[in-house]
């Protein structure tokens, strides 16, 4: 409130106040309408690149030199070419396997660890907590060189495991779960323990079902991060058969030459699964970011 202690704000009589409120209200409504207009313009501007990519992908390759949004001969030929050629199907499969297993691994291991940190007493709890906390500070990107040596020495390079295993231990996921578990009343566990339930039963049947928002946020984020990661999969996967979508697209980028429609069709196909994820889970994604500041 101290902020409002502005010199041009004076104590008012009731009539003055009503008058002020009415003009302020009118001004506010006009102002808000202007805001909406400006924002719509920006939002449309933001959608232009995506719309242009889609527009291009629906043209025949020869028509992409036309500087117009109008498509004279709309065609799905570019999509058909790409799907027939088959690379992108392999990449889809690789991305899907890697992202799904990474996300599942993160949710299971991080929630188990968080449950122990939230509900159990044991020696070195404090130490464990800080070791995991340290992991948030380490950017994954600085680990690629030693990780490459390590995974090479156990012959895992060029396998899905080379990408999945390092993607599972996400330190911040443990904290997201722990924070959520800490908010679940301990009386629930205690009651279950008096009834003779073990830790795992409580975790599986009581705590985890109550932590659905945390589970879905961690699932979506670890899935999207694994799907979008470029640097590490680029290093670990050099076999085109098992490349992920980003690695595949980055690698063939340029080989389409002037076939702009094909290039854009590959971009659209690469974007499609995530657009679906976004449309399905828009709310959860936004809440996840707002609640935790998760950033890839």
């Amino acid at each position: 409130m101290a902020i409002l202690a502005n010199k041009d704000v004076q104590p008012l009589t009731a009539a003055q106040a009503r008058h002020h409120a009415a003009t302020a209200d009118r001004r506010t409504r006009l102002f808000n309408r202007c805001c909406t207009g400006v924002l719509i313009a920006f939002a449309l501007l933001w959608l232009v690149p995506l719309a242009w990519a889609l527009d291009t992908s629906l043209k025949p390759n020869g028509e992409t030199v036309n500087p117009t949004w109008v498509i004279e001969n709309p065609t799905l030929a570019s999509f058909q070419t790409l799907l027939a050629q088959g690379d992108i199907i392999n990449w889809y499969a690789a991305s899907f396997i890697i992202s799904a297993l990474s996300a599942a691994g993160t949710v299971v291991t991080a929630s188990l660890a968080a449950y122990a940190l939230s509900r159990m007493r044991f020696r070195y709890r404090w130490l464990t907590f800080w070791i995991i906390l340290m992991g948030i500070m380490v950017p994954r990107q600085v680990l690629v060189v030693p990780q490459f040596q390590e995974l090479g020495s156990i012959n895992l390079l060029n396998t899905y495991w080379a990408v999945i295993l390092p993607a599972i231990p996400i330190a911040i996921a443990v904290f997201v779960f722990k924070q959520f578990f800490d908010g679940i009343p301990k009386e629930l566990d205690e009651a279950a323990r008096i009834d003779g339930a073990g830790f795992f039963h409580i975790y599986r049947r009581i705590v985890l079902p109550l932590a659905r928002p945390a589970v879905s946020a961690v699932t979506i984020f670890s899935f999207v991060w694994a799907w979008n990661d470029l640097l590490w999969p680029l290093i670990a996967l050099s076999n085109p058969e098992i490349m992920t979508i980003p690695v595949g697209l980055a690698t063939v980028q340029g080989t389409y030459g002037i076939r702009y429609a094909d290039t854009m069709a590959s971009a659209i196909l690469g974007a499609l699964p995530l657009v679906l994820v976004f449309l399905l889970f828009q709310r959860r994604i936004v809440e996840g970011i707002a609640g935790t500041g998760l950033k890839g």
Binding site: P49, N228, L274
Partner: peptide, 11 residues
């Protein structure tokens, strides 16, 4: 939410 590779191709 799009992969960097998709963004790069479009741009």
């Amino acid at each position: 939410i799009l992969p960097s590779a998709v963004v790069a191709l479009i741009w």
